[in-house]
Write a protein that binds this DNA or RNA. Structure first.
Lengths: 205, 205
DNA sequence: AAATTATTTAACATTTTTGTTCAACAAAAA
DNA sequence: TTTTTGTTGAACAAAAATGTTAAATAATTT
C-alpha cells in the first residue's frame, strides 16, 4: 500500500512525544491521536509501547552515530580551522536536534541495553576521531600554533558549551517569552567558537 | 510525636525518586516501600502524588534559590579571584546536587507554575548579582586586568562547563564502569577554572 | 473478482497505578 | 487513664493506561 504513510506518521509523532516526555511520560493514545490514526492502528503496527519506543530509540541512536561520523568528516585543513569547523558543525547538529541530548541523557543512560549499544557502536568511531585530532594537535603544538592540550578534554569543552546553549534555551524562553532565538543561537555559536579558540591558543585574535 | 521521622523519610525518598525518574516515572508504592513505611502512610501525610511532588519541588526550588545567593556571597576580592571562586563554588554546589539540574530542566521548565516561581524568586537575585559582577568586570577591564566582557555571557560559560561535567558523568561511567569519580571531578573543576580564566583574560598563566 | 492488506469504531479486557477505608494496635500527649 | 496521633495491613475502589478483539469497510494487489 501507499508506502506506509500512517505507520511512518506514528513513528514520527512517537519520536516527538518520547523526546519531549520520555518513555514514562508519553501516552500511546495521545501518540495515535496526534498521528491522526486510530488507537488500534498503533497496536497494529507496534504491538507494545515498549516496541514503539525501541524503534524510535533505534533511529535516534543511528542518527547520533552518523552525526559523530559526519561532524568529524572534515577535509584536510589546519587544525585551528578544523576545530572551529568542529564547533560549528556540532552546533548545527544540535540546532537540528535540540532535544536529543536531553532524551539520550534521560532515557539511554539508565537503560543498560542502550548504553551497551552506544558503547559498541558510537564509541569506536569517536575514539578514532579523538586519536587523530590528538595527533594533529600535537603536531601543531610543536609548531607553536596551539598550546599543548588533551584532545578528549577539548572535545568535552566543545560539547559542553554547545550543549548548554540548547539546554538553557527553555529556561531563557520561560524567562523571556518573546526572545529572538535565531539571534540567540547565532550569538551563542560565535561565543562558543571564541571560547574554544581561546582555549586552544590564548593568543589568537 | 518523635518529630515526624517517617514523614521526613518519605519526603527524602520521594526526592530521590522524583529526581531520578521524574514525576511520570516515579511510583508512590515504591517510594513508600523504600521509605520503609506502609502504602497508606504515604497518603496519610500527602494526599496525592501531585502533592508530594509539590513538597519536593518546593524544597528543591528553595535550595536552588539559596544556592544562587550563597554562591554569589563572596567577600571583597579582586574580580579575577572572585570569578575563580565563583566557578569553584558552583562546581561544589553541583557536587552536592548532581542530578538537580536534570530535574529542573525536565520538570520545572515544562510546568508553567514553577517556571513562574523561579522567575519571581530566583531571577531577581541573579540579575542583581550579574549587575554587580558587570560593574566589577568593567572596572577591572579599564585597568587592563581582564578583557572587556559581558557578565551574563561569562556566567553562562561558567554554568555551562560546570554543568556539563556532571551531565556527562553517567555517560562516562557507563563507558568506563570502574572510573575514579573523585579524580574525574577534581580534574574537571581545575579544567573549568582554567577555561574560564582564559576566557576573562587570555594572558593569565 | 477475489484475496489481501489497511483502517476505523467501539467495545471490552487487563494491567498498573493511584487513592480510600477500616479495623486493629502502638506510642505519645492530655 | 483517656485521648489523640501515628502506624500497619489488607482489602478494595477508582482511575488511568495499555492492549485486544471483532465486525465493518475502504483501498490495494493479485
Amino acid at each position: 500500500m501507499k508506502d506506509n504513510k500512517k505507520q511512518k506518521k506514528i513513528l514520527e509523532v512517537a519520536e516527538e512525544e518520547f523526546l519531549m516526555k520520555g518513555f514514562a511520560g508519553a501516552r500511546t493514545v495521545e501518540i495515535a491521536q496526534k498521528a491522526g490514526v486510530s488507537h488500534s492502528m498503533l497496536h497494529y503496527y507496534y504491538k507494545t509501547k515498549e516496541q514503539l519506543f525501541e524503534h524510535v530509540m533505534g533511529e535516534k541512536l543511528q542518527q547520533l552515530k552518523e552525526s559523530v561520523a559526519t561532524v568529524f568528516m572534515i577535509e584536510d585543513m589546519p587544525v585551528v580551522e578544523k576545530v572551529v569547523e568542529l564547533v560549528v558543525r556540532h552546533f548545527e547538529f544540535l540546532s537540528e536536534n535540540p532535544d536529543l541530548p536531553r532524551f539520550i541523557i534521560n532515557e539511554v543512560i539508565v537503560r543498560p541495553e542502550y548504553a551497551e549499544m552506544m558503547k559498541r557502536e558510537a564509541l569506536p568511531i569517536l575514539k578514532d576521531a579523538v586519536a587523530r585530532l590528538q595527533r594533529e594537535l600535537d603536531a601543531a603544538a610543536k609548531e607553536g600554533e596551539v598550546r599543548t592540550m588533551d584532545a578528549a578534554t577539548l572535545l568535552m569543552d566543545i560539547v559542553s558549551v554547545n550543549l548548554f546553549s540548547f539546554i538553557v534555551a527553555p529556561i531563557l524562553s520561560s524567562v523571556k517569552p518573546d526572545m529572538d532565538f535565531q539571534a540567540y543561537y547565532h550569538a551563542r555559536c560565535q561565543e562558543n567558537v571564541q571560547l574554544i579558540l581561546n582555549r586552544i591558543n590564548p593568543d589568537i585574535k
